[in-house]
Design a protein around this nucleic acid. Structure first.
Lengths: 335, 335
DNA sequence: CTGTTAGCGCCTTCAT
DNA sequence: ATGAAGGCGCTAACAG
């Protein structure tokens, strides 16, 4: 490979000092328009590109951020990442992407690599780190935004963005109760999932608020997948044929539930209503189209990045520890 | 923020020279085991982290690569990216993610930012740049891998990975012909899509090989979306009721086609067979489950990254300009 | 408006 | 086995 030209090469070719070239390429005012023109032209001819690496070393700023998520193939996270990258690109930041598969070791090593790369900030989604470990890593970053993960003490340079899972669940329950449902099952996802726990608590409290007696047998934990929804509903319906509506931990579980219901030659929503969570693209395309709670995923990504940029660039972030509200999208799977 | 400790700080605390610390953290042999131990312990206490920025400036290597794709929310690309990041992480590389939305200006500015960040290499997916522009940018990277995009002259430091779209289409056509279909429609996707063109040419040549007369009216271009499939098939079926099978540009188009067919109270596959392309996760979950051509997306990502690492690290890459073959996944939408 | 000096944190090279 | 000098490409700070 041919060595890329440096600022010094341009300077020599233009017969000026390196500093003058620096001023030209950085649009600093203190330079005559014509020398600047001339230098830029020479730089172009030489194919000069400023080295962000060298610049970063001096400024101790990399215009780079990291985003850490469980899995980019999960549409929930890819939407968030898209929002993040859109705003990053608009502000000339670059984004390091790290997948963790919810494996704490991989999350830790990814975080360490971002630290060594000296990112200006990091966005952590659904972190599975323990409280102490998380707090300790957070300290090492200049700034951080947490999405979908609470911590006990929020350091000054950290912001937290979350979804109001309890409210979302309550909107779903209310929707069903208003339509006359009294036996509402809940396929609750993995038992240790934090958002699952919040949704479960919303389920219980909202049923209570509506004066509906609680039957713990109507709640089943399950894998957060199509198969998880299908198999778990199978067992649940066998044991509880009185059920007329099924709430689901996420859309994939809901789509599995739909399949199980149709397999039994029951009809949706006439015999059984189904509600999902997340509003992934698939939700609108299955048959019947799925009523679900839309989480504003891309918006969350955009806001997270906006906050991070404000933090990095020393502006006063307008947004603090935002809580996003889900929106009930009523489609064909509920009556 | 507290200034992070440098190699010099550790050196001072340990009463040795910076160089010795460097040797310790880099596992160079020329250092006694005990001083190394001692230095590492002190480094740990101080919370020292090597600066990859400074290191990159010296070595002119960043252990960073870039991947440029149209849209991370498209499951086709998120799978590829996942494969790339998995292998990158395994080899301690970090990955810059850039979305282009197929807008050449955004692709160009993303590429420029990667160049300034001095990535060790880049992976370009489905690039929409013109031949000349692409060739010119490619020259600036140390190494590059192209996925799903041909170029006329392949520079020495560039590798090309593609999918055999023609073969895939031929597998689909043959599958249908063997089952007795003679009137096979093709919802061909956007007219300017390169993979669409390859599939179309496969469609024509394979029909010909099977001695089936070609009716250009059975080919309709369409948006590569659910709605595109639905609306285009609507028009096509109105004009050509003799059709008994529908090939689709991708799975989304196929799922739209399925919806249109079911809306007409026709049954699948009894009245009409449908085949998609890509095998996105949704394909297996719709009803009926979609017969489709699986592209080994994650594997492609892994291989692309493997080749890139080999290139960067000066190994002789075992793989050259690989062509991946699709696999026909037969499910319920064909008889 | 332009140039000079120094240093960002680390590694390469050569000495000791 | 350890240390000293120099430089990677750039910009901040100061001088002129």
């Amino acid at each position: 490979m041919i060595k890329r030209p440096t600022i010094a090469d341009v300077a020599q070719a233009a017969g000026v000092s390196p500093q003058t070239v620096s001023r030209a390429i950085n649009n600093k005012g203190e330079i005559s328009a014509e020398t600047k023109e001339r230098i830029m032209e020479i730089a172009r001819q030489l194919g000069f590109r400023p080295s962000n690496i060298a610049r970063s070393l001096v400024k101790q700023q990399t215009t780079t951020i990291g985003i850490v998520i469980p899995d980019i193939t999960n549409p929930f996270f890819s939407e968030i990442v898209r929002g993040v990258e859109d705003l990053a690109h608009l502000h000339s930041y670059n984004v390091f992407l790290c997948n963790t598969d919810e494996v704490p070791e991989r999350e830790l090593s990814s975080i360490d690599s971002l630290l060594e790369k000296q990112v200006d900030g990091v966005i952590l989604c659904s972190s599975r780190l323990e409280e102490v470990e998380l707090a300790s890593k957070l300290k090492e970053f200049p700034f951080a935004v947490l999405i979908n993960r609470e911590i006990e003490e929020i350091p000054e340079k950290v912001r937290v963005i979350s979804f109001d899972d309890r409210l979302g669940m309550c909107m779903a329950v209310t929707h069903l109760v208003q339509r006359g449902h009294r036996h509402i099952a809940f396929l609750a996802g993995p038992e240790r999932s934090r958002s699952g726990q919040k949704r479960l608590s919303g389920y219980y409290s909202c049923l209570k608020d509506n004066g509906i007696s609680i039957d713990p047998g109507l709640v089943n934990f399950c894998e957060p997948s199509f198969e998880g929804g299908l198999h778990t509903l199978q067992k649940l319906l066998d044991a509880h044929p009185e059920v007329t509506a099924v709430l689901c931990y996420n859309d994939l579980v809901a789509i599995g539930a739909i399949r199980e219901i149709l397999t039994r030659n029951l009809s949706i929503p006439a015999d059984l209503s189904v509600i999902g969570f997340d509003d992934i693209p698939m939700a609108a395309l299955v048959h019947p189209p799925l009523t679900t709670l839309r989480m504003p995923k891309r918006e969350v990504g955009i806001i997270a990045m906006k906050i991070l940029i404000d933090l990095v660039e020393g502006n006063h972030p307008t947004e603090y520890n935002k809580i996003f509200l889900p929106e009930l999208i009523i489609r064909g799977s509920t009556n």
